[in-house]
Design a protein around this nucleic acid. Sequence first.
RNA 1: GCCCUUGUAGUUUAAUGGAUAAAACAGCUCCCUUCUAAGGAGCGGCUGCGGGUUCGAUUCCUGCCAGGGGCACCA
Length: 550
Amino acid sequence: MIAEILKKAIKDAVSAMSLETGEIHLEYPADLAYGDYSTNVAMVLAKKAQKTPKELAQEIIRYIVQNKPDHVEKVEVAGAGFINFYLSQDFFTESINEILKEREKWGSNNLLKNQKTIVEYTDPNPFKEFHIGHLMSNAVGESISRIVELSGAEVKKANYQGDVGLHVAKAIFGKQKNSEMTWGKAYTYGVQNYEKNKKEINKINKKIYEKDDNEINSLYEKGRKISLEHFEEIYRKLGTKFDEYFFESETGPIGQKLVKENIGKIFEESDGAIIFKGEKYGLHTRVFINSDGLPTYEAKDLGLAKIKSERFNYDKSVVITGNEVKEYFKVILEAMKQIYPTLAEKTKHITHGMMRLPSGKMSSRTGDIVTAESLIDEVKVKVLEKMKNSDVKNKPEIAEEIAVGAVKYSILKQSAGKDIIFNFDKSLSFEGNSGPYLQYSYTRAHSVLEKAKEQNIKLSTKISRLDLDILEKLLYRFPEVVERAGKEFEPHYITTYLTELAGAFNSFYAKERIVEESDSAPYKVALTQAFAYTIKNGLWLLGIKAPERM
RNA sequence: GCCCUUGUAGUUUAAUGGAUAAAACAGCUCCCUUCUAAGGAGCGGCUGCGGGUUCGAUUCCUGCCAGGGGCACCA
């Protein structure tokens, strides 16, 4: 990659002047007028070299220019002592050729070649609603797994679902009282009446584990099946295909066994419960087996780590959850470190912010929740309204792709970890910095390419336009952006980049006629094709479909 | 109380310790007999407050202020 060539050139120059430096820092200048890359080495080393940054920069430049690194048109010193690199036209032309050759592989890298990664995300609970919080986990997780996949790793997408536990007992309690209620409503009822009926609900909880009550067993099986089928329908809409499913009903017994085997060593008894004293490690105490002898979420998570590694011998296990469980997870990891040090070492917890409503926190306790489906459906209605004059054939299908794209983009456009105050009118947009904006740019490119094909214009980069556009200068950066997003587990670098790129394409489209009878038409069509591959692959990384018409 | 985390145009958000802090939305003005106007072109900032480190701080450290999350048998 070009960045490596530049780094090496800089490093050679610096060491030729017998100066020591660590990793060379290269960045994209905020303004393309300052070149394609910029480095601050001269400013960093000025003091050591006992020169002013500008003098040092000049000397470094002199050395670099003498050695003529590939693809560099000119090197300049600017500002306080920045060294700016301007790449040559042939570099950009070659990049276009490379994109046309790579096609759907364009953007990939080998950072994780031969590595196995399991990514766990979404994690809804049967018997409860699939709400917009799960949507957030799904959007982030789906994107991260695809980024990891394009980095060369073998990826397993995993979903961990809580099919046992107190929440199930609460839902079954509600259903027993009123069989007409939906499972979501039954759960809310159970939560609201838990304090008054603690004994009864705890008894149901125990019976679910022991499976010795026919009425409860049948209610349980029915509810579990309905929930899971319903979830599958949502995954289909969202474009997620899981490879592995894990359930608390299977992680529970294993986790329980693990904890029991380590009482006295890692865990201890306290008030009838089995706990892990996190205070020794600057954390807090958590209960792993409650005083009824049942495994809590904590014990189940330990069991989960074990099952995961048995089913898929991973090099890295990524777990994506809301940041509300951040402190909790630290305790789990500490306990895991003592039982399975290598597994703990391989586990990476990524947290995303919470989806909250303008009225405050979403709560299935009060029934104050927005389900993922109702949200998507509502957005879909708006999209269909906008499409009423469109002649697209499969409207409902395309409308759904656009609706999901709008929702996912609104989640992925900001750096992970920040909360989203979800306001229907404000949070979702079809214009500007939005999913549909990217999708629309793609359909435009696609139309152009169709027309070029009809008029038999062959792609070529032989005769390029004289003035390079921002578009060429942005396209080649795609793999570098993907690499960074992968290293930092930050899909939003991709959204930011794609939106900037789509803006460049839309400006190009507005001011140039692409399909025309001219010497530069084959080049402009090639450029359009390169853009189409980039935006399509980029949208794929975000888990957003790229319709050809909308 | 302790531990995490966030604070940037009116709003939603960008900015890998760097150059004049960047977009979008909302608002105002233009641009469709052209490859889809979900588009393009044009007009605005004491980065919550105070210290510190640095040649340089939105970014790192620290003290306040304000939000959010977590802290024993829920998940």
